[in-house]
């Protein structure tokens, strides 16, 4: 599992508004890539285009190509619903389904897409919860509502839910921004393990986090307020944090702005 993502000259629009301009990048399979940059620089917007979630916002559209192992996600006959099954997503705030139990939350993607076999679902729930380092904490209360868990547990539940549909890629949009430091540590450990199986892309405001968990880091910025966001540079995380090629990156990393 884990596919390569190849983005070629991608522009993201909301209606007539150009939000992100001309991004090209390659994301290696089974690696962790972090997107950093100041607020409003388009990193979350760009992340959403990798599984076409931006289309859920009215007027959201792209120009350009996103290839997943040579298959264009925006090809004429590609079903966005199928794209989202291949490229999973975890959101800023934990969002378990309030009407479902813990186990049902994990298998929601499977059940809603027609899997009915109880045994398969139960196995899948255990495997995914183990994969999300949550099994030991919830195995005795699988039938309790997911909303009863702590924030950090809920976020790992959402990660379990995302990996239960066996995606190739896992997108994470600031997955720790609503969590306390201990829960953040657990999620970061989990991300470290997930890259064995998945291509992981994470948006973060926290530069230490990017430095801790990612192999590659991409820095996004705005040319100026009101102008579209764009990719400044992307390189090995070590290089970005120690010796970036661009002045803007260095300024941002060293805290001179943003």
């Amino acid at each position: 599992m884990g596919k390569r993502i190849d983005v070629q000259d991608l522009h993201v629009y909301y209606g007539s508004f150009l939000a992100v301009e001309g991004v090209s990048m390659t994301i290696e399979p089974r690696s962790v890539t972090a997107f950093i940059g100041p607020s409003g620089c388009g990193k979350s917007t760009f992340l959403k285009t990798l599984n076409r979630m931006h289309e859920v916002t009215p007027g959201g559209r792209v120009e350009g190509k996103v290839l997943l192992d040579d298959e264009d996600l925006y090809g004429a006959n590609v079903d966005p619903v199928a794209v989202r099954r291949t490229v999973g997503m975890v959101f800023q705030r934990p969002n378990p389904f309030p009407t479902m139990s813990i186990a049902d939350n994990v298998t929601a993607g499977l059940r809603l897409n027609g899997v009915k076999d109880k045994k398969v679902l139960a196995e899948k729930a255990e495997k995914s919860l183990r994969g999300a380092n949550l099994w030991d904490e919830v195995k005795d209360r699988l039938n309790k509502p997911g909303a009863g868990l702590s924030g950090g547990q809920q976020q790992r539940l959402c990660i379990a839910r995302a990996i239960a549909v066996e995606p190739q890629v896992l997108l994470m949009d600031e997955p720790c921004s609503a969590l306390d430091p201990i829960s953040t540590g657990k999620v970061e450990d989990l991300i470290e393990e997930l890259k064995d199986d998945y291509t992981v892309v994470i948006v973060t405001h926290n530069m230490q986090q990017a430095a801790r968990v990612s192999d590659k880091t991409a820095f996004f910025n705005l040319k100026e307020t009101g102008k579209p966001g764009h990719l400044i540079e992307m390189d090995d995380t070590q290089k970005i944090f120690n010796n970036p090629s661009e002045r803007a990156t260095e300024d941002y990393i060293s805290g001179r702005f943003g």
Binding site: M53, A82, R84, F91, P96, A108, G109, L112, N113
Partner: peptide, 8 residues
């Protein structure tokens, strides 16, 4: 969003 992201 959570549901859409699961490919539902």
């Amino acid at each position: 969003d959570a549901s859409y992201a699961l490919g539902v």
